[in-house]
């Protein structure tokens, strides 16, 4: 077994700290964008409204909704999620810093793997850092196709939380794997689990926004004032629901594969493919909750808000399975490195 390169391991930790700082600034930029973009939009609309009112008065037509914030209509971002409209400098800074942070984080994760001569996902610290990298990379990848910058503060916020958790709660110096983890199934099972979790992270953010947006839409329908103005840059609840569903279907397939690959590995390591170990129980619970979500989408009365709640509950189970189960529950999956 080749020796651990401890110097490189220390550089890796430094990279990851740097990445955490970069992402923190990116997070501030994204929050700034949410706060100002809606204000800018409001200003533009007010100006348009002022220009339109005399014109409308002259025509005398009973048009409604011209000013945007009129009764019954609620302003949301475009359904197609294409880049359009006015410039959002703060969001641009957020995206640029996120890209920079992702590069630094990638350097940290890769150097960790090189230092240990193995894949960098063998303990909690490494799941967190690799997971954060995948979340950030998937988000940036999505940004190249669609304008999902409204998700920035949520997704990058979660990335910052993951990196802080790694650095503060689960710090583990780079080391070899114990015999139980020395299997090629570690590469397959855990990598797919990390990707699935990253996608669930994205849909979690979308489902939370969907609930907020649905509430805002209901408020607007009732004619009450809009208290969640920052949601102007966020698409409608229905769009969020549809996009989240598309991502959740992919994540669900990956999670199914994760559970299956885990079962195959369990058979290789422990002589049974399923034994209701605490980790297995919670992986099963996650699978069933998201299966429930997919069914809810096809059940009358369960689409929309209820399905979003299921998606959120599913993600809370993912978080519970990763943190509480790993740290506090005893079981065969005791590899947290703590």
């Amino acid at each position: 077994m080749p020796s651990i390169d401890e110097t490189l391991g220390q550089y890796s930790e430094l990279f990851i700290l740097l990445a955490a700082m970069t992402f923190t600034v990116a997070l501030i930029a994204f929050c700034w964008d949410l706060a100002t973009a809606s204000r800018t939009l409001q200003a533009v609309e007010d100006r348009l409204a002022r220009q339109q009112v005399p014109a409308e008065a002259a025509v005398g037509a009973g048009r409604t909704g011209g000013g945007g914030a009129a009764e019954g209509a609620v302003e949301t971002a475009d359904e197609s999620l294409e880049y359009a409209g006015q410039r959002r400098p703060a969001a641009r800074i957020g995206v640029a810093l996120s890209a920079l942070g992702t590069l630094i984080l990638a350097a940290g994760v890769i150097s960790r793997g090189l230092a240990a001569h193995r894949v960098p996902w063998g303990n909690m610290y490494e799941f967190c850092t690799t997971g954060a990298l995948v979340v950030a990379a998937v988000f940036l990848l999505a940004l190249t196709r669609k304008d999902m910058r409204f998700l920035g503060s949520f997704v990058i916020g979660l990335v910052v939380i993951m990196l802080c958790a790694a650095a503060i709660a689960f710090p583990t110096p780079v080391a070899h794997l114990v015999p139980a983890l020395q299997s090629y199934w570690l590469i397959i099972h855990v990598s797919v689990a990390v990707i699935a979790s990253a996608l669930f992270t994205l849909t979690f953010a979308m489902s939370v926004l969907q609930l907020l947006q649905a509430r805002r839409e209901a408020t607007a329908m009732a004619g009450r004032p809009d208290r969640l103005a920052f949601l102007r840059v966020v698409p409608s609840a229905l769009t969020l629901e549809n996009v989240a569903y598309r991502i959740n279907t992919v994540a669900f397939v990956l999670w199914t594969f994760t559970v299956m690959a885990g079962a195959i590995w369990a058979e290789k390591a422990w002589g049974r493919y399923w034994g209701w170990d605490t980790k297995e129980v919670w992986s099963f619970v996650i699978w069933v909750v998201y299966a429930g979500y997919l069914h809810a989408r096809a059940t009358r009365g369960w689409t929309g808000t209820r399905a979003a709640w299921l998606s959120i509950v599913g993600y809370l189970c993912v978080i519970f399975n990763f943190t509480i189960v790993n740290v506090f529950f005893s079981g065969l999956h005791s590899y947290s490195g703590l």
């Binding site: 034994g275 209701w276 129980v281 919670w282 069933v288 069914h295 096809a298 059940t299 529950f329």
Partner: peptide
């Protein structure tokens, strides 16, 4: 479909105690 969905969610809830209490087979 509604019953199937209900049973699915019930199954998820029912599986949880197995991780909270020690289990005889294991």
């Amino acid at each position: 479909m509604r019953t199937a969905l209900f049973l699915l969610l019930l199954l998820a809830v029912a599986a949880v105690p197995g991780s909270l209490f020690p289990q005889r087979p294991a």
